[in-house]
Structures are given as structure tokens and as C-alpha cells.
Write a protein that binds this DNA or RNA. Structure first.
Lengths: 146, 146
DNA sequence: TCAATATCATTTGCATGCAAACGTTCATGC
DNA sequence: GCATGAACGTTTGCATGCAAATGATATTGA
């Protein structure tokens, strides 16, 4: 018989130590904090979309999706709902007939400042269990696995 | 006029540096890796559910949801789909008539070993951009913000 | 005992999130 | 000029994910 062999084929597997499970649970806690701080009944993806639009101005729908890490089907839904809320607007691209150009409406623009303030509060609250150095470390390590 | 005051009311806000955005994008990458490694067309939540059932044996549906960090409505959908796949089974609780007792089917049991192996591979691949010490640090910091 | 409360499971409604297929339009290269 | 392929936006189908409401059953405390 071989040496002190303790089942290397099938060692313990602890769900709560897996990166995927932890990412899901951390996202849940963040979503809770988001919801109790956000202005105007926006969801996280809607929030990201408005922030991005404020940065870039006018942009095509698919490109906006790439800028916010959203699938073409997902960004379409988000854009539709933000249009319904009157926070963004779209116009046909006169040069490229395939595209529609998305931009913030005046009401959307008016919200940006408050949204950024809420966003800062949300991030602060989410990271509150960590001290300043730990926060930097966490964000740095997360950035490496994106 | 005051000193070198650079708009403390509204400092820069960078979406990609926010913990919420990073959690979402990291989860997306993990989901990709999950999908290309998992056995038997399972989703991450279905995977977690089976792993937990293998640990605890028999458990009520709502309790299973708490053990896997899922809402009652979410765990119901997951349980239904796993039942359809024949990987889990449910029986009425004879003591508490409100409950149904969920457990793995023989087919579900037979999958556990392969699932754990795939799960380890998925975590390894997701954390591959980090060295061993960084991986430990990341998991430790994430655990603090759950 | 028995009323108030809690738990369990279900259902509805809304919002991501992704894959796949589709028709339209644009860009490229021959 | 024109075929080929790429990019754009849309739609469908499936699977989370959560809030809120509902009915059934258990538990608890006065």
C-alpha cells in the first residue's frame, strides 16, 4: 500500500469557500445595500447605464452594452425600461442606418449628480466591514480576475 | 476664496472602480468558466443545490434555500427543474404537513463526485490570474463582506 | 384553550442575463 | 461592382433573483 494517502482524488469541497458562491452572496448583499440607497427606483444595471451615458454622451445601443458589460439582449431591455421612465432618449443614426444613438434625456441628466452621490454611499456601505487598506486590496485583486 | 478646493461635493466617480460593478463583471467571467467546465448542463445554482444536498441529506425546501443563499421563490424554481431532470426527489414530511423533504435521487448522488471535480477546476480557473497568496487574501476579504 | 405569531410552500410580477437565430445594413477585398 | 463577412438591433426561450401576497400548518404565550 502507498503512503499516507488521504483521498487526493476527492478531497473536501466546501461550497462557501468557492469563489463563485462567494461572488454570488457578496453580490446579493451589495444588491440589498443598493436598493436601500438608490434614488428613483433604479436597478444596478439601469444605474450603470445612466452613469456611462453621462460619461460618453451619445453612443449606439450595442456599444453602450459593451461599456456597461451587458449582453445585446440585456442592454436592450435596460434601454427600453429607461426610455419608458423618460431618463434616456434614442434617435436614428443618420450615417449608419443600423444604429440608434442613445443619450440621456434632460431628466436623466438631472439625476446624475444624485446618482453618483448614492453610488458612493453604496460602495462605502458595501465595503464598510473592511479598513481602507483592505478595501484597496480587495478591489485590486478583483480587478485581476475580471 | 477658499483654498485649493476641488469639488468635494462631486468628486470623480468611476464606474469600473465600484465594488458592485466589479462583482457583477467578476461573476460574469466566473459564469463563463463555469459553463465550459460543468457536467450535465447544470447552472451554478443547480450545482450549489446538489452539493448542499449531498452534504446534508434530507432537508425542507425553504431550509435548502437558506443553505444555498436563495430566496424561497428562487429555490422553488431550482428544485422544480432539478426534479424534472431526475436529480432530486421530494416527499411529504409526515411530522410537519407544511414541509416537503428534498433529497438527492440515485442519479443525483451518482453525479456528486464529478461535480466536485468540475467545481474545483472552475474555482482554480477563475482564480488563475492570482498567485496562491493573493487567492487566499481575496477569499478572506470577500468573506468579510458577505 | 386559543388567539397572535411564525413558518412553509406557492404564485405573480418585474428585471436581469445569456444563447441562438434572424433580417438589415455596412465594410472589405477581389 | 459585388460577394463575403461583420456589425447592429430584435426576438425567443430559458434560468435566476427578489418583493409581495396568499393559504395552510405549527408554535407560542397569555
Amino acid at each position: 500500500m502507498t503512503t499516507n494517502h488521504v483521498n487526493t482524488e476527492n478531497p473536501d469541497y466546501s461550497l462557501e469557500d468557492q469563489i463563485g458562491f462567494m461572488l454570488r452572496v457578496a453580490s446579493q448583499r451589495h444588491a440589498n445595500i443598493f436598493q436601500s440607497n438608490i434614488v428613483g427606483r433604479l436597478t444596478p444595471t439601469q444605474f450603470s447605464t445612466i452613469i456611462r451615458l453621462a460619461e460618453v454622451g451619445k453612443v449606439s445601443q450595442n456599444h453602450l452594452g459593451r461599456l456597461t458589460a451587458m449582453d445585446v439582449a440585456t442592454i436592450k431591455g435596460v434601454v427600453d425600461r429607461l426610455k419608458t421612465k423618460g431618463l434616456i432618449q434614442s434617435e436614428p443614426d443618420l450615417v449608419d442606418k443600423r444604429r440608434s444613438v442613445i443619450s440621456l434625456s434632460p431628466q436623466g441628466e438631472a439625476l446624475v449628480s444624485d446618482l453618483k452621490r448614492a453610488g458612493r454611499q453604496i460602495s462605502t456601505e458595501t465595503l464598510a466591514p473592511l479598513n481602507a487598506k483592505e478595501q484597496k486590496t480587495l478591489l485590486g485583486l478583483l480587478r485581476k480576475i475580471l
